[in-house]
Amino acid sequence: MEQFAPVKRKDGQPVRYLVVDDSVFARKNLGRMIESFGGQVAGEAGDGCTAITEYDRTTPDIVLMDITMPQMEGIEAAERIVRSHPNARIVMVSSVGYQDNIVAALQRGARHFVQKPVKPEVLYEVIKYVLGEDAVVASAAGAGA
C-alpha cells in the first residue's frame, strides 16, 4: 500500500482512530490505510451501540463510521457520540452516499463523508482537513512536528 507523509497530532503522537464498520474485512482495510497515514487504530466496533461505548473507552482523535450496520446505524451513533462529546470528529465512510444521507449525517454532527470504495488518497486528504490545525504533516522520516 502507498505510504503517505505521516499525519501526527500537534504533540507529535500518532492520530488515534476508532474504526466502525460491520465488516471485519472493511475494518482491516481501513486499518491498513490508517497505518499508511502514520496513525493508530485505538479501537474497533461492528455496530453503532458498540461504537458509542468504544468512543467513551478510547476517546479517539477521529472516528471512521460506516452507515449501514445492524442494531444501530452509523448516523444515529454519530449523533449520540456528538451529543456527549461535541468536539468528536466523525467521518462517515459508506457506500450509500446519496444526498439525503450525507445531509442527514452532517446535520447530526459528522464532519465529512467518504464514499466506498475508499481511495486512500481521498481519505488522507479528508483526515487532514478534519483535523485542521490540530494536526501536522510530518516528514516521511517521521520527525514528529
Binding site: F25, T68, V96, Y98
Partner: peptide, 30 residues
C-alpha cells in the same frame, strides 16, 4: 467477508444513484 463487502459497496453505489434519481431506498446489511 470479502463477498459481503463487495456486495455492500456495489449495492450502496447503485442505490445512491437511484436515490439521487428520486427513488427512496434502504439498504440492509449484507
Amino acid at each position: 467477508e470479502t463477498v459481503c463487502e463487495l456486495a455492500n459497496q456495489v449495492i450502496g453505489n447503485a442505490v445512491t444513484s437511484l436515490n439521487d434519481q428520486g427513488f427512496h431506498f434502504r439498504v440492509h446489511p449484507p
